[in-house]
Design a protein around this nucleic acid. Structure first.
Lengths: 110, 110
DNA sequence: GGGTTATATAACGCAAGTGGTAAATAAACG
DNA sequence: CGTTTATTTACCACTTGCGTTATATAACCC
């Protein structure tokens, strides 16, 4: 899950959010996160690289500018994974509740 | 998104996967990830702490053992976030495609 | 109580990631 | 062409996080 590794950073998550409603140039993105997180333009560029290499975003040179966009597949992957964990687990929630209700715990949870 | 930060680590993601089909003791978890990643019991314990503090997992002392379990809300959160990015974005995919099809790119994408 | 098992914390070294500044690359534009 | 604008890369300092070993805490068992 390269994707999850890349998204384990607030700046990169913010970059992705900024891209969620459409493509933006590297410059626009750098300005935005630069203002919000107080980081320089090269720093933002390096975050973009991480996202690119993880397959989270895509970039296309558009003349003098480079347009970044979200890769939906990456988020499908995230959703599927998270959903997998939750789905499996839900069926077993009852087991735990029952266990506890059964009085197995003496005074463990105080 | 504390949750995403916590899940930006392979060991912690694995721990969560191990919990996806039911609760496990700290010891079981430590043994499992210890074998898979070659890390010690204290290392695993600290990962569990991170997950706990991020609200990803829950733990209950069950006698001499401590049982860990997944907190579904955390994964709802992840799913919602990922879905939000993708959903918004999909509508704008066409815009990009159009732009490109329109011939705006001279020979940018080779 | 004393010993054993289970888990967490402490203290510390090391590696990885992040940020900054400066320089390189690339494209537009006069 | 040379200059300006947009973006990436290089290089280096520093912080953060991870891992390890040793130790503390807590519950169970005899």
């Amino acid at each position: 899950m390269q994707v999850m590794d890349a998204l384990g950073d607030p700046v990169r998550r913010r970059l992705v959010e900024l891209l969620s409603d459409g493509e933006r140039s590297a410059g626009q993105l750098a300005t935005a996160v630069g203002a919000e997180f107080g980081i320089s333009q090269p720093a933002a560029s390096r975050h973009l690289r991480v996202l690119r290499e993880a397959g989270v975003v895509d970039s296309v040179p558009q003349g003098a500018v480079r347009l970044y966009s979200v890769r939906p597949e990456a988020f499908d992957q995230v959703e599927a994974w998270a959903s997998g964990i939750r789905r499996f687990w839900v069926g077993h929630l009852d087991a735990l509740e029952t266990e506890i209700a059964r009085g197995r715990r003496s005074r463990d949870d105080d």
